[in-house]
Nucleic acid binder design. Structure first.
Lengths: 241, 241
DNA sequence: TCAACTTGTCTAATAAAATAGACAACATGG
DNA sequence: CCATGTTGTCTATTTTATTAGACAAGTTGA
């Protein structure tokens, strides 16, 4: 990792250093409380100037990944990645139980719109049909862990947004329509950089990487119920199939 | 997307522009052959200078995503992402059949090493036990699509590397040990930036994002056979569960 | 052919990243 | 207390990213 690679990658050296250190931490190679090597040693290891390393450490401190104390050093301040299990029965709150204390879902907004080709294909309806669109953020221990956009057929669930607003749980709101259970039909997983909105709502450092999951949930007969586009911070979470 | 965000993200403006345009292309929003807006219009849209946009376009052209012709404009030159299906029976070559012409796997190197804690846990052996480690690259139509590290117990498969070198197929080599079939037990999916080695072997632009899959394959009785750490370019592939 | 549009290529100026060195301030163990 | 090693802060310089403007060169359709 040399500075002269920066103009090739378009990623500043201090950010590549921060990414490398964070990767060790969230990957479990460095345990919480552990002391990092000194700034001078890190500078040698990354073939960079001490000031560049300091900028990387400052970014990690702003993210809450490490904590730096004058005269003593920098210390790991955050636990490793949490796992999000994907299977036939995928429920957000059940999924993170045991890995976090309080788990909550919050609705940012809802609106009525016409289904585009993607949404229509996923829900098995015609493009242009009315669909309810929900924008939500889910948190574990008050740390945002997931930013989701959810589409449902409007004719099948006319006042879903209203009911969901009162009790922001997919499982509970579907139950209010008499659907006792539902299943995950398919999940497509990709990855990309976070955009401005995602950076803000998920409280991420700019340029963070997201795991993107596109999922279709169906009733037990296989009829599509909802289409969900979820974004997870790749530094905080991993998906387990 | 303004230039003044650059010092916050550590990602150069031209790279953020390139990422945004590439995202539209691999996401299917811009179809192959389609003409992109002119450099002046893109500069306005991204609140950037035309030269900055040109650097982004040059990067995309170097990646083979677009093609630029003087006096005419820039045109989309690559199809959208290919899907890699993950299920109980996950086989690389069968998986991409129909999405590409020729599919090949190539062994970079192999070596004997002592299992670390991760590998030992995955294979159900004791840490320190001897394991064979294979480094491979898989390609579709001569485009590298996957960089994998594979570990197997040495006592269970003593000359696996030799047999695999002759016929670089996991399925075929396991079959030579009398294992007619095997199954995917678990898959963990994460995402991160590519390192220098991965950038080179996968022929990526520096700073590219990888989907990382950690998988354990077992025999039909559930006994672990191999542990595979596969890296896929997030711009070229998506994982389907 | 020509007007209007496109990309290609120069020069120049400014903003930010990265390097280099020096010294202050704090922590720790002898 | 003090020697040693750590982080914090300052100045200065070089390299790179970004902006700005002008004009050449290629394409297209009237």
């Amino acid at each position: 990792m040399s500075a002269s690679d920066s103009h090739l990658s378009g990623v500043a050296l201090w950010r590549r250093i921060a990414d490398a250190i964070r990767l060790d931490i969230v990957g479990g190679k460095r345990l919480p409380g552990e002391r990092l090597p000194g700034e001078t040693e890190l500078a040698e290891r990354f073939s960079a100037n001490r000031h560049t390393v300091r900028r990387a450490l400052a970014a990690l401190q702003a993210e809450g990944v490490i904590r730096t104390e004058q005269g003593r050093g920098s210390f790991v301040d955050q636990a490793r990645r949490v796992s999000y299990r994907i299977g036939k029965r995928t429920r957000f709150s059940e999924n993170l139980a045991g890995q976090a204390g309080t788990i909550s879902r919050h609705m940012l907004s809802s609106r009525l719109e016409n289904a585009n080709a993607n949404v229509a294909a996923a829900l098995g309806i015609r493009a242009g049909n009315k669909v309810t669109r929900l924008e939500t953020v889910s948190s574990a221990d008050n740390r945002p862990m997931s930013r989701a956009s959810i589409w449902l057929s409007y004719v099948a669930f006319p006042d879903f947004a209203t009911r969901f607003a009162e009790n922001p749980s997919i499982t509970a709101t579907l139950a209010s329509y008499g659907l006792a259970d539902y299943a995950r039909a398919s999940t497509r997983i990709s990855a990309r950089h976070a955009d401005a909105d995602e950076t803000a709502t998920l409280k991420l450092a700019p340029g963070a990487i997201l795991l993107v999951s596109e999922a279709v949930d169906t009733d037990l007969a296989g009829k599509p119920l909802l289409y969900a586009l979820s974004r997870f911070p790749a530094d905080l979470m991993e998906l387990v199939v």
